[in-house]
């Protein structure tokens, strides 16, 4: 047993002040904190009373407070953009009861290798909203690359623009309820049967996530009829650790096949 203090701040300011004074962690849904060794901390700052459950849409910009659960995000995005990549990425993540508990804030702060949210946020060029020592909007990639940003700061929300690019999400799972060995997200801008642009991210790799620039370059300005899907497969070169349950060599083969298939399906369904 560990004696933890529980704080229930009512304002963001109170929360970010507390984090500087105590050896504490922010608690959102708690699902990522439970398995942790809590010996090194002496308390939690519970965020549920903060005004971070909000959802805003202004023109094409969407903003979610960090206390929104996966289930909330899925149902809210569904109403405004049923083809959204974030929706596709999260709607089968974990399981129904966990999606009712996992928050975007906790998920982004924790960002495990099997994260289902990171890839979508990267391809959406999402901004992470921070309060505290670091204040303001930070591009998701910058946020992930610089762990110091999290220091004494609270993720208060995410912001991204809706997009009409075509997208797909593929989770490599053994059973329907599984943490993916890897997750592919891709968005393609297609006009006049030509791929104008694309963004492709694979999460779960040794680098946590990889941009598949080779494929992005290959697709750029290419007519969809000219795409050789076997070529796409060959261009994917990412590595996996296999630390958990997946065979890294197999994942490496699979990731190319599934990216090729995903793109094929996208362009054929136009």
């Amino acid at each position: 047993m560990n004696n933890l203090n529980w704080y229930f701040p009512k304002t963001i300011k109170e929360a970010t002040d507390l984090i500087t004074k105590e050896k504490v962690l922010f608690h959102a849904g708690g699902t990522a904190l439970l398995p942790r060794n809590l010996d090194k901390i002496n308390g939690f700052i519970n965020l549920s009373d903060l005004p971070l459950h909000y959802f805003k849409k202004e023109n094409d910009t969407v903003e979610f407070g960090s206390m929104n659960t996966y289930a909330n995000i899925v149902s809210k995005i569904y109403e405004i953009d049923s083809e959204n990549i974030l929706l596709k990425s999260l709607q089968t993540s974990a399981d129904t009861p966990l999606r009712n508990r996992i928050t975007i804030g906790g998920s982004i702060a924790f960002a495990p290798p099997w994260s289902d949210i990171i890839g979508a946020l990267i391809v959406l060029d999402a901004k992470i909203l921070l309060s505290g020592e670091n204040n303001g909007d930070f591009p998701i990639e910058k946020f992930l690359q610089n762990p110091k940003l999290k220091q004494n700061s609270l993720v208060t929300g995410i912001k991204f623009n809706l997009s009409n690019w075509k997208s797909f999400s593929y989770r490599n799972i053994r059973t329907k309820k599984d943490m993916p060995a890897f997750h592919i997200v891709a968005m393609l801008k297609i006009e006049n049967e030509i791929i104008q642009d694309s963004k492709i991210i694979i999460t779960g790799t040794v680098n946590r996530f990889d941009k598949i620039i080779e494929v992005e370059n290959y697709l750029k300005n290419r007519k969809i009829d000219d795409i050789e899907f076997s070529q796409i497969e060959k261009l994917v070169d990412v590595k996996f650790t296999g630390k958990r349950f997946s065979d890294p060599e197999y994942s490496q083969k699979l990731v190319g096949i599934e990216l090729g298939r995903g793109i094929k399906k996208l362009v054929r369904n136009l």
């Binding site: 399981d95 053994r174 059973t175 309820k177 958990r244 349950f245």
Partner: peptide, 14 residues
Amino acid sequence: NKTFNDYKIWTAND
């Protein structure tokens, strides 16, 4: 793999 997370038995969804 001493957890249900890693030892995969099916749910209804499978």
